[in-house]
Design a protein around this nucleic acid. Sequence first.
DNA 1: ATGGTAGGGATCCTA
Length: 261
Amino acid sequence: MKVVSWNVNSIRARLENVLRWLDEEAPDVVLLQETKCIDEAFPRDFFEDRGYNVELYGQKTYNGVAILSKHPIEDVQRGLSNFEDDQARYIEGVVNGYVRVASVYVPNGESKESPKFTYKMQFLDALREYLPDRLFTDEVFIVGGDYNIAPTPQDITMEEKWEGSVMCTPAEREQFQALLSSGFIDIARKFHPYGKEETPDLTTWWNYRAGAWQKNDGLRIDHLLVSRSNAGMVKEMGVHRHTRGWEKPSDHAPVWCAVER
DNA sequence: ATGGTAGGGATCCTA
């Protein structure tokens, strides 16, 4: 099974690109972030026509997450049950009996000084407390999403420009490490460890502004966290970075992994 | 050099 996470920055604006990508890659499960519409406005027919089941947790204008799956989606949860939040940033479900998946859109934080940064930290606290309760021995749990955190300087193509700014602060990185410590691995760095000469560029996000894509000025902020106990079921991962070069692209590229029982 | 672009939807907010 191929499981992919993609921050599409509006499902309606991105529909043509997402369908083109679906037809190329035929993923089994898609975890979407920043759908930016209420559930009634989600273009679900286009996905159902291609054989996907659709579960939504949307809101008007901002945020919004979704799961598309060729298998039926069971045990669906919307939002973090331990966190009061009026923003739609988390949806979870079980597919094919043994793969629990979640789509998470961690707050951006804006800047270290912003109240939104405090909210980001609170959301991450709640996520870290919530996720371990969702680990079951007979399932692999893949928490995919836009974490808005570059875990190390090696996840930044222009380190000197970004280091220390929002997404690249020690506080955010401690949160990311704490998430891993709660029972997960960063699957990208299982297959492509830090510090190896042949490590590929795993950047997932390039700002729309100032020609960031053309300069390859980007960050690895989209991640697939996989439950440590069953992480051996994940055989491979990658980033579909070519989609960032398409007309009318999302500012994020899909990050995918292959799962086998 | 503190800009730049994109999306939603309202004439600004968020990223």
